[in-house]
Design a protein around this nucleic acid. Structure first.
Lengths: 224, 224
DNA sequence: ACTTTGTTCGAACGAACGTTCGAATTAGCC
DNA sequence: GGCTAATTCGAACGTTCGTTCGAACAAAGT
């Protein structure tokens, strides 16, 4: 009837995933979308955002090209959904793990472990997050930047606490970004058949970073 | 006259840049190619390899689309030329700087400074090198991988020397790759209007990394 | 002057791109 | 069964992609 073409934009159908917690099943729509996101993550990981075509993505999901657009309105939004979900999850898990831990050094170690554990368990998603960090535009970009900034600020807070507690003298910004570099670079080299698991790597990176940042503060370097 | 179409492939014209040292002028061909590489580096840096079209690249060089193919036979080879030149230069400069320096710690500091100095002075080229590290295929990929491996091995050597000299106990592979991560990640955050220059950052990253790696070796951690 | 070689370009190629549309199919409910 | 809404798809849209071709222009050698 009416005009099925213009303006409709199906948009009404899109907003699912009730703000509360759906225990498991969610709607059919949500379940299928989740599958598509998972397959798309694989493809983006292997070929990059620009290098992956909508035809590649649809093939990976076992869905027709046109059918994809029932679930999201553009390729860019698909990337956004992947990145947002990945990043939100890691922030949320971090908050849960930090709760109840008071020791400043221990809190930094938890940050590192949380990051690396999630990174290695969801390597493809994290590569897409790290490697395609600049491709989103405008609205998508700023919404993701907000989550990113929150995560960054948490880490700044942890290091500033440590710095205050022990009277250290590093530049927080450099330290935080060096730490992110150490951790995020892992997607370029980690090979599960050669390298240790997340716990071991987190311990070793934590050792390097924490000793590096905690040695030689204002507090006497000699034995005095 | 013969057949100008098939098989010619102009290839003979390509091999320039005499193995020796051309003092400055080089051939006209070489000079123009260098300009094109410089402009292409800008564009690849801004839009990524897949995101940059040959039309973008030709526009940036002020040359026609078809004209570009007089200088290189494919977009992939263009990226290869950029990456190879960038990487070769950084390795070559490193070797020169290491010559004559014996102290193991000092040699690691030189490695870090050399990397960061070149990184910040040629930020676009280094971003293209870091970010588009996986797009080349087959022959191009393996030739570049060889340079990469040489650079990596140099760093492993420096750290193993340090480790042997001072009886330390870190995992070299993890340490090297953590260091690369710290340094290479810089392309995602460095802002010349906010952040310090290469010397200062190299000093601070060097402090973090070297203290991290040198503290708490086999040599007693307690005062015994 | 003519010839040769090096350099540039407009126009076009077929293929692949992201996205849309309307019709067909399926699932859920009476 | 039949009705409605949710889901899927084939076919096509117009655009852009990387690359090629042959003709045109400029430089260098004689």
């Amino acid at each position: 009837m009416g005009s099925p073409s213009t303006a409709t934009r199906i948009s009404g159908r899109r907003q699912r995933s009730s703000s509360g917690h759906t225990p498991v099943p969610a709607t059919r729509f949500d379940r299928r979308l989740k599958e598509i996101l998972a397959h798309a993550t694989d493809v983006f990981c292997k070929k990059g955002y620009e290098g992956a075509s909508m035809r590649d993505l649809s093939r990976a999901s076992g869905m027709s090209l046109a059918g994809m657009y029932y679930y999201f309105e553009s390729k860019e939004r698909l990337l956004f959904l992947i990145q947002k979900h990945t990043f939100s999850t890691i922030v949320q898990r971090l908050k849960a793990r930090l709760e109840g831990v008071d020791d400043a050094e221990q809190r930094v170690r938890i940050f590192i472990l949380n990051h690396l554990e999630y990174f290695l368990a969801n390597q493809q998603a994290m590569k897409v997050l790290s490697h395609e960090a600049e491709v989103l535009k405008n609205g998508f970009a700023s919404e993701l930047a907000a989550i990113k900034r929150e995560y960054y600020r948490i880490c700044v807070g942890l290091l500033d606490d440590l710095k205050g507690e022990r009277d250290l003298q590093f530049t927080t910004r450099i330290a935080v970004l060096s730490l992110f570099g150490m951790m995020n670079w892992i997607y370029t080299w980690h090979n599960p058949r050669v390298d240790a698991d997340a716990d071991a790597i987190a311990r070793e990176m934590g050792d390097i970073f924490l000793r590096g940042v905690m040695t030689g503060g204002k507090s006497r370097r000699d034995g005095r």
